[in-house]
């Protein structure tokens, strides 16, 4: 369990993180979502006691990180896979980490095995590919068998195989009852990995909810329908109270399911050439919520619903 309360970080006159409060629950993968520069990495560094908050605090199971004894047994983190001395072997890197928290030497071999680096453990870490470096970072995070795990953009720059591996790995860790917080700037990636989301933009909290709920609220369901009897169909649909819009020889029906439209058409004997449910683009929705846009700055205080409501039209047109 991670609890951030009123977390704030200023760099000179720049506000990187602004009064951020959220909780991360055990047993689930929580996505920490925001565009580049939103303050995700700064927040993670503050969770680990590396950066000193200007105000507020973070507690890990009720304790600030700096007060943890043998912290690697409580929190494991991969913030940057490059934080390894390039001329030190992977094994030596893990050995000093294990020693620092009085972990038994066998843990080094165990975590190397767990991430599949046993064969290259004696090689200098500077020669590792990004994927291997990432695995070494994960091995380091797992060293103390911690209950809380933090990963900062773990899939950045990885090939599809690496992405899949990390995704399944994180879900496996959460299934064991651990608290997993993973940051990303890609909503589509988080939609596949995380059950919960903490969304920030410009250092402020935009939303904390389950992923399904967030996607539901951020995007709108529409149905696209094409028919040779388009005008007749339009009248029928409008009679049922659905908003309809014409789009390039087709109709786009808001707030409807394909079942509803299919049944309307079937009852009236209207021929359909296309009937496809549409979802607003996740990326577009995410941009509207977190981007450096006028709506964002003026409407932030009004909460998520109004931001989403204000972007309906754009979402519909973004629907494929």
């Amino acid at each position: 369990m991670i609890e951030a309360v009123g977390l704030t970080k200023h760099y000179g006159r720049t506000v990187a993180v602004d009064n951020l409060s959220f909780t991360v629950k055990p047993g689930r993968v929580t996505g920490f979502l925001g565009p580049n520069g939103a303050g995700k990495s700064t927040t993670m560094r503050m969770i680990l006691g590396l950066d000193r908050p200007t105000a507020g605090q973070v507690l890990i199971d009720g304790t600030p990180y700096r007060d943890l004894r043998r912290p690697l047994t409580t929190v494991g983190a991969l913030l940057d896979a490059k934080w390894v001395h390039p001329n030190r072997s992977a094994r030596a890197h893990l050995r000093w980490l294990a020693k620092s928290n009085r972990l038994p030497e066998r843990r080094v071999a165990e975590v190397l095995d767990q991430v599949g680096l046993t064969k290259v453990a004696g090689r200098r870490a500077g020669g590792f590919s990004l994927g291997m470096a990432q695995r070494l970072g994960i091995a380091a995070a797992l060293l103390g068998d911690p209950k809380v795990l933090l990963f900062d953009e773990p899939v950045n720059g990885l090939d599809p195989e690496g992405i899949l591996w990390i995704r399944q790995f994180m879900q496996g860790l959460a299934a064991e009852g651990r608290t997993v917080l993973v940051s990303s700037h890609l909503l589509s990636e988080m939609a596949l990995t995380a059950q919960d989301l903490v969304v920030i933009g410009r250092g402020r909290l935009i939303a904390q909810s389950s992923t399904a709920e967030f996607v539901e609220r951020a995007t709108e369901n529409t149905v696209r329908v094409r028919s040779p009897q388009l005008d007749r169909l339009r009248v029928l649909i409008e009679q049922r109270g659905h908003a309809v819009r014409e789009d390039d020889g087709a109709l786009v029906v808001a707030e409807a399911t394909s079942e509803q439209i299919g049944e309307i058409a079937g009852a009236a004997g209207v021929v359909l050439h296309e009937l496809s449910p549409q979802r607003g683009s996740l990326e577009q929705a995410f941009m509207q919520l977190t981007g450096d846009s006028v709506e964002y700055r003026t409407e932030l205080g009004n909460g998520l619903n109004e931001i989403v409501a204000g972007t309906d039209q754009r979402l519909v047109s973004a629907g494929r």
């Binding site: 680990l48 590396l50 990180y65 700096r66 912290p71 940057d80 934080w83 620092s100 928290n101």
Partner: peptide, 14 residues
């Protein structure tokens, strides 16, 4: 230079 100071302080907050 290599960022291992962060790993050090992460492992030993004192």
């Amino acid at each position: 230079r290599f960022g291992t100071i962060r790993a050090t302080f992460q492992a030993v907050p004192n």
